[in-house]
Amino acid sequence: MNEMLLKKELAYVSHKVYQRGLTQATGGNISVRLPDRDAILIKRSGVSLGEVSSEDALVLSMDGEVLEGAGTPSKEFRFHLGIYHSRPDVNAVVHCHPNYAIGYACLGRDLPLPTVTARKILDHVPVAGTAPSGSLELAENVTHVFQTYPGIKACLMEEHGICAVGDTLEKAYNIATLVEDTAKQSFILQQLKSNVPEAVSNT
Rank of each mutant, 00 (worst) to 15 (best):
Y149F: 15
L49Q: 03
E3R: 14
V13A: 07
Q190C: 10
M62K: 08
E170C: 13
T72P: 00
K153D: 12
R87C: 03
G103V: 15
N29H: 10
A131S: 12
I83A: 02
V47P: 02
R20N: 10
S45N: 06
L58I: 01
L189S: 12
L169C: 08
V90Q: 03
D167T: 06
H80Y: 06
S135L: 12
V13W: 04
Y12N: 10
R33E: 02
V145M: 11
R78N: 04
Q24N: 08
S86A: 15
V196G: 00
N2Y: 09
K43Q: 10
P88Y: 09
K153T: 05
E137Q: 13
N29T: 05
E140C: 09
F77Q: 04
K153F: 08
P112Q: 07
L49S: 00
S201R: 14
L136H: 12
V116C: 14
A39W: 04
A176E: 01
Q191W: 14
E198R: 09
A154F: 07
E51F: 15
E158M: 12
A172F: 01
Q190E: 13
R109M: 13
K120E: 13
E65Y: 10
P35Y: 02
G28K: 12
V127D: 08
A39P: 04
T203G: 12
Y18V: 00
I175N: 01
D123Q: 14
S61Y: 02
E68M: 10
T168N: 02
K8I: 13
A39K: 01
S31Q: 03
V165I: 11
F79K: 01
C96N: 14
I121S: 08
A183V: 04
S74M: 05
L49P: 01
M1E: 09
G161F: 09
A154R: 05
I40C: 01
K120N: 11
H144K: 15
P126E: 14
G134N: 14
A154W: 08
T182G: 01
M157L: 15
G108E: 04
V142P: 02
A128P: 03
A139W: 07
L60N: 00
G27W: 07
T72R: 12
I175K: 03
A118P: 04
I42C: 01
H160E: 01
C106S: 13
A131L: 15
M4W: 09
G28Y: 12
C96R: 07
H85E: 11
A25M: 14
I30D: 01
H97W: 11
V17L: 08
L156R: 04
V145E: 08
N141S: 07
E137I: 11
V145D: 04
D38T: 05
L81E: 02
N29P: 01
E51I: 09
P114E: 06
L5H: 07
H97K: 05
